[in-house]
Amino acid sequence: MRRWLAWLLLGVVVGAALVVGARSDPAPPSNAERIADLAAELRCPTCRGQSVLDSNAPAAAAIRTEIARRVDEGQSDDEIVAYLDSRYGESLRLTPPSTGLASLVWVLPVAGVVVACAGVALAFRRWRADPPPEVSDDDRQRVRRALGQER
């Protein structure tokens, strides 16, 4: 019982710390943070594999400037994303869409993990269902003899 108390206490401490850490959000995001977050979600149109935030290519810099202008104008994130989609198309978004064929990229790994876990669980059931091997008196005697010799 005292053992469990220690673990209970541990759970309470960690839970409380996490609640404090997760809930008390500091200040609302600054303009610079909003620009960075928006730019990190877009692929730089002229380079390979870099986001608009990370790239120094002129095209990426232009999009960053455009985002910054709209943030300073006071547009919301959704408005800016809608504008960027209309201007550049959704193919620039680094997060693949969750509809249509592209949604498979989200679904397949989850399905894979579920299937794998089910497979492992099934394997354990089968292993458990296997009865332990029959031990004959002969075997027992042999073991006893071997142990006796050793001692």
Partner: peptide, 27 residues
């Protein structure tokens, strides 16, 4: 599997649908 799928997924989509999508850091 996630890393492999994310890397080749744009190719698969392009091959099947002739549509270009990006799979990047957020994913």
């Amino acid at each position: 599997f996630v890393v492999l799928l994310g890397t080749v997924f744009p190719l698969l989509v392009e091959a099947v649908n002739d549509e270009r999508i990006a799979v990047g850091t957020p994913y």
